[in-house]
Nucleic acid binder design. Structure first.
Lengths: 340, 340
DNA sequence: ATGAAAGCGCTAACAA
DNA sequence: TTGTTAGCGCTTTCAT
């Protein structure tokens, strides 16, 4: 005869206490590694915990302590951000470190307007901020520790960790100029994101610094998509006086530009030097390895978890603003114009 | 003089009760929409809830009810799975539907061996199973509702939702054969994943069905990476008796193959017909739009959440096994060998 | 239709 | 070093 499954009563701290012959307080002390417990009792309790496979109820713990180790990662449900090398790296970096720090990672793919459900959330990581500023302000107002990544916020007292996009862009364009290029185009990303805006800024700064006039015609605006990159590339190559080099706001777009150029019979890098941004591994696979600017995405993601963890641990600790350097990575997609 | 922030006492059900002039029980009834409450009281309570911006503590609720609406999404921290179009689509699909269903989404990027912390988790979605089978068995043993996606499990009583990879592959190769191709290669994905293994199976089935002998030399094994795809493509093209068509296990690899072929002076599709798998939007951008097999990833992800939600709602409901069809998408990367 | 009171499983004073 | 006890905020009988 079949039998319905016996409802395996979940075992509680009380069971452990009874079985170990101590009070629940002592058990609590053991599992929380606080206070003082006689070695004999400690080992006894630990043995019973193992035997019974006891796992404390996180809900009871949180109710009792008022604390929570839940971290929410808020990512705009915005294609340009979510569907990108950047998005993936952030999820991976944050996910990995949360796993290591035993923090629960709650993923919120959010649009701009629906308010986040913040009950039970101990801290929030905002991955880029497109239209999520109200939600950030709201969370801050409720006293929830927050960390913003990929967006340097000057006007809000909140920890943020971003990459020096302007500096990275500047060094890329500096490099191009050093190679002898004068007509240098820039294909931007979505300039409503700070990253793209800063890269544009760095591009301009490098030109101006070197007394090259910024030519608005050489700046093509896109939304980070390969489709728009393609359009921009075609436009660029068909120009009456074509540029000799182009700085592209992302590697994935840069690869598209490279493909277009080749389709149109151009040789890379002889006819067109291309430099991207991201250090996306895909850049390695083509016939010509893509030169780029590496941004420490995983590091940024991991730092954000560490910082949030710090904030969650201590009350009233000051916000930190961190700008991570970006690094020029020279490979094969740019050539010198100088006669040897 | 500066002042330390006043600890904004979190408001509880008791505050609402007092303010509304009813008992906490009544408030509980209102917020849970159960039992009977006089309309007058109900509206009064609701008004106060709004005023005080009261949000019930999920921890207290869960402690009291023993129920939880936390869904864990388990993704192998395995590059081939996580770093893929597939991985992203799954995260997005699951994330979006959890958001809609008000389920908390816990993200677990896991390796094979560390056991999952399942306390407080109401249900689990396993996105593909590389080495996570023990964890699945463990969860099932604890009576936690589980849904497996992208892996059709015959031998375990668990709901699973997968794509008909074999069928999809078969129709792709059928199509090639219909075009007159006889020497057809296959670049596999990582065949330790079921998806890749099934695609290989479908490839063979189509050939055999059409009385074309399977030539082991025409099967190139990879790990889904573009790097290995490149190697495989080079090998393929350099063969003494080159194939006229190739079925590639993913679009991202297919694009790499296309790039290699073009670099080696081949014309696509005249010299080599290529068909991929995924319907990755990137396939649209090249000079030749990639023919492919579309798999309903978002649908699979969403269905998994729905199914899990169902399982979590009702005890003892039977496991469902769902196989979603894959659909051939004909674009421009294959050509007919038949003389007109 | 409503409320009093007993938990849910755990932590943290406070006593001993 | 250990145990007793009072909550944490909510749900849920069981009376009323």
């Amino acid at each position: 005869m079949t039998r319905t499954k016996i409802p395996s009563k979940t075992i509680s701290i009380e069971d452990v206490a009874r079985e170990s012959g101590v009070s629940i307080t002592t058990v609590s002390r053991v599992i929380n590694k606080v206070g003082t417990v006689k070695e004999k009792n400690r080992s006894k309790v630990m043995r019973v915990v193992k035997e019974l496979n006891f796992q404390p109820s996180i809900f009871a713990q949180r109710l009792a302590t008022g604390k929570t180790n839940v971290v929410a990662l808020v990512i705009p449900r915005y294609e340009g951000v979510f569907y990108s090398f950047y998005g993936l790296e952030v999820i991976r970096g944050v996910g990995t470190l949360c796993e290591a720090l035993k923090l629960d990672l709650l993923l919120h793919l959010t649009d701009q307007r629906t308010p986040l459900n913040l009950r039970g959330v101990g801290g929030i990581i905002f991955s880029d901020i497109i239209g999520n500023r109200p939600q950030l302000v709201d969370a801050l107002g409720k006293g929830i520790p927050c960390v913003v990544i990929n967006y340097y916020l000057d006007d809000l007292d909140v920890s943020c960790i971003a990459v020096d996009n302007a500096g990275g862009a500047e060094s890329a364009v500096d490099y191009l100029i050093g190679l002898g290029h004068k007509r240098i185009a820039h294909i931007t990303g979505d300039v409503t994101t700070q990253a793209a805006a800063k890269r544009l800024e760095g591009y301009k700064r490098a030109l101006e610094k070197n007394n090259i006039k910024v030519n608005e015609e050489y700046i093509l605006y896109t939304d980070y998509s390969r489709g728009q990159a393609r359009g921009a590339a075609e436009k660029l190559i068909k120009m009456l006086q074509p540029v000799t080099a182009v700085f592209v706001a992302s590697d994935s777009m840069a690869l598209e530009v490279m493909a277009v150029a080749r389709e149109m019979g151009k040789n890379i890098p002889r006819d067109l030097s291309i430099i991207g941004f991201d250090d996306n591994p895909s850049g390695l696979y083509g016939p010509v390895a893509l030169s780029t600017v590496r941004q420490p995405l995983i590091k940024m993601a991991e730092e954000s978890v560490k910082e949030l963890n710090r904030l969650m641990g201590s009350k009233n600790s000051a916000a930190k603003k961190i700008l991570l350097p970006a690094e020029l990575v020279i490979r094969e997609s740019c050539c010198s114009l100088k006669t040897p």
